[in-house]
Simulated assay, not measured.
Amino acid sequence: MPYVWPPLLPGDQEEVAGRVAAVLEDAWQRLIAKQAAVITAFADNWRTPYVLATLAEFRRAIEDFHRAVDEEAAGFVRRQLPYLYEQGATAAVAVSGGRFAWTLIHRDALQALAADSYADFLRRSQEAGRMAEQFYRAARAAARREVPLLAAGNTTARQAARALADRLTAEHRLDHVIYRNGARVPVRAWAEAATLAKSAVAYNSGTLNQARQAGVTMVEVFDGPDCGWTSHTDPDKATGTVRSVDEAAAWPISHPRCRRSFGPRPDL
């Protein structure tokens, strides 16, 4: 029986990102194990009913992975995003004064963040699922067209079956996800990076919207010493600079693992 993960609880950004990544990695590894079972079926026991049975288990593993992504994404946007947004807003209150309340500006901002974050998780899940589905279709086609042609029990048939298994293995590796832009990223890496990015944006959005609501128009940027404003390699370095709230809202982070934050400057 696979491990049943408890519901996601809000907390430290790194810890929550690690938990989301672990859940999705666990589901993906179970899918990879089912793929290995399909490959083994082709190589060692290529009878069509047995191969199709292992393929059915692989298909269920795809569904389990999508379900895991959906549940983690839903938990993240329902629990972690509001928690981080409020933390960011509360940090702004400590500098600019006033108090935080879930006013319309904050509710609208959180709703937009939640929709964007949920859609991003599902989009990444679909990219991963696309690769798994490609293997499923290729293996199913082979089971229906090529396996029945193998002569039962002789050396040539066994060699042909192993060659078929080797071909499927080489053409459909699932140790990383290949995105449409050609990037090759392990599931754990994209899950962690996506969670950290959305977490940072939520926290900074809370800070910036609270500053704007308090009438503050400028913020000081805190970031890594080498981090650029619009990308990590941008020569326009971010940390220590003073930017308008609107500028900061346009670039709340510059890359997925960005540690940028903002401090309201009510004195400017």
Rank of each mutant, 00 (worst) to 15 (best):
V4H: 09
D12I: 10
Q13C: 05
E14V: 11
A17I: 01
L24W: 05
D26H: 12
F42H: 04
A43Q: 05
R47L: 12
T54N: 06
A61T: 05
V69R: 00
E71T: 11
E71D: 14
F76V: 03
P82W: 06
Q87P: 00
A89Q: 02
F100H: 06
A109C: 09
Q111S: 15
Q111M: 13
A112K: 15
A115Y: 09
S117F: 11
F121K: 01
G129T: 07
A132F: 06
R140T: 12
T156P: 00
L164D: 03
A165W: 02
D166Q: 14
R167F: 05
R180H: 12
G182P: 06
G182R: 09
R184Q: 15
V185D: 04
P186T: 06
A193P: 00
L196S: 02
K198W: 07
N209M: 08
Q210C: 01
A211I: 02
R212S: 10
A214G: 03
M218T: 08
D223E: 09
D226P: 04
W229L: 01
T230A: 13
H232N: 07
T233N: 13
T233V: 11
D236Y: 04
T241C: 01
R243C: 06
V245T: 12
I253A: 04
R259K: 13
P264Y: 10
P264M: 08
P266V: 12
